[in-house]
Amino acid sequence: MVLNSSNTAQCYYDQNVSFFYMNSGKNISINWRKRDYVVVTLGLAVCFIVIFSNLLVIGAIFKNRRFHFPIYYLLGNLAVSDLFSGVSYLHLMFHTGPWTIKLSTYQWFVRQGLIDTSLTASVLNLLAVAMERHQTIFNMQLHSKMSTRRVFFIIFFIWIVAIVMGLFPTMGWNCLCNLPQCSTMAPLYSRSFLVFWAVLNLVTFSIMVAIYTRIFFYVRHKSKQMKEHTTHTRHKETVFGLMKTVSMILGLFVLCWTPGLVLLMLDGVNCKCKVLSFEKYFLVLAECNSFVNPIVYCFRDQEMRRTFKELLCFLCRRKNRTSENQFTTLEDSRLRTIRKTTAINGLPLMNHASEDAAAGTAENYN
């Protein structure tokens, strides 16, 4: 759809999403194709895995007192970000494909804003983790002495900034009144916002990589100095192991999200390249990041892995305990009935005194 320059000052608030997709040249399928069914089915499966695995991480951090330290609170908040990402992609799955054409502009902004908020929360949380590790390790500590109140203030601040970033396009940084500036990948977003958002995240990635590089060289230097002191070996291994875990989480996050952010930036600068050809693949890659963190915890942290097993076995143990309690209750009820009958009618034909004695002996052992 070609629009002349006289329409650039006009706002199109009353138009539906298909109008902006036609303007940007992004195709929307009207009928369900086999490809659409495959994308939605796989997407829903991944979303449920993301939600379940990150609920497991959050539950483990709440359950195990050994994780009640600032670094694990921040990693728990990262799991909350990934959980929110899973919910955002779940919402996207029910508003994509042929469903997209039925969306209003407000519904489309909600769909994209949820994903933007989850990404921003994850990036800021990883930055907070990097800064916490930098301060802790340079002070030769395993865990930060930061107060719980301060940690929760940081978490609160992360989510406030993430929500504001997700609301920017809805609050006016869009192309509803400037159609030539509309993005190709996100047809209601202004190209300038895509450049700002992509550059901001890539710069944050670079800062985090620089922080972890400095920490790595510092830890390696200190390890050489501590080789002669066997008393510090266990502490050094614990610190280095935790560093490897958070570094792996950061590395996988950068690996999964950088291609998509670069693609957004290319679209933002109006690059004449086929950004739509790679869009869905990079979106799937970004979505996969939300369930790799629990996998990292399983392979890297033995205590976390043990807590996961306890949580997964909780329902089985609860079911067994319920069955045992029901059996005990029935047995007690039977004994009470026997005693009551004996008191009223005298001794029954079958003497149950031995059963009462056995029950009393069992109670004494318990």
Rank of each mutant, 00 (worst) to 15 (best):
N7G: 00
D36E: 13
G25Y: 05
M22P: 00
S6C: 12
V17P: 02
T8H: 04
Y12W: 13
R35M: 04
Q15M: 15
D36Q: 12
D14V: 03
N23K: 04
N7V: 03
Y12G: 01
I30L: 10
V17K: 00
V40E: 08
S5L: 03
F20K: 01
S6G: 13
G25C: 01
S18I: 13
Y13N: 13
R33P: 01
V17A: 06
Q10I: 15
K26Y: 02
V2M: 06
I30S: 06
Y21C: 06
V38A: 14
S6H: 07
N27M: 06
Y12C: 07
T8F: 15
N4M: 02
Y13V: 04
Y13D: 10
S6L: 15
L3A: 01
S6Q: 13
Q10C: 07
N27G: 00
V38T: 11
Q15S: 11
V17L: 14
S29W: 09
D14I: 02
Y13S: 10
Q10W: 01
N4F: 03
V2Q: 14
N4L: 05
Q15C: 10
D14E: 11
S5R: 10
Y13M: 06
V39R: 15
V39L: 15
W32I: 10
Y12A: 03
G25R: 14
R33N: 05
I30C: 02
F19W: 11
Q10S: 08
F19E: 01
L3C: 08
V40R: 06
R35H: 05
V17S: 01
I30Q: 11
K34C: 02
S6Y: 14
Y21N: 12
K26M: 04
I30A: 06
N23C: 05
K34I: 08
I30P: 02
N31T: 10
S6F: 13
M22Q: 15
R33A: 03
Y21Q: 01
N7R: 08
V39S: 14
S18F: 07
N16K: 14
F20G: 00
N27T: 08
A9P: 09
G25P: 08
T8S: 08
T8R: 07
C11D: 03
V2W: 14
Y21V: 00
F20R: 00
V2E: 14
N16I: 06
V40H: 08
K26S: 04
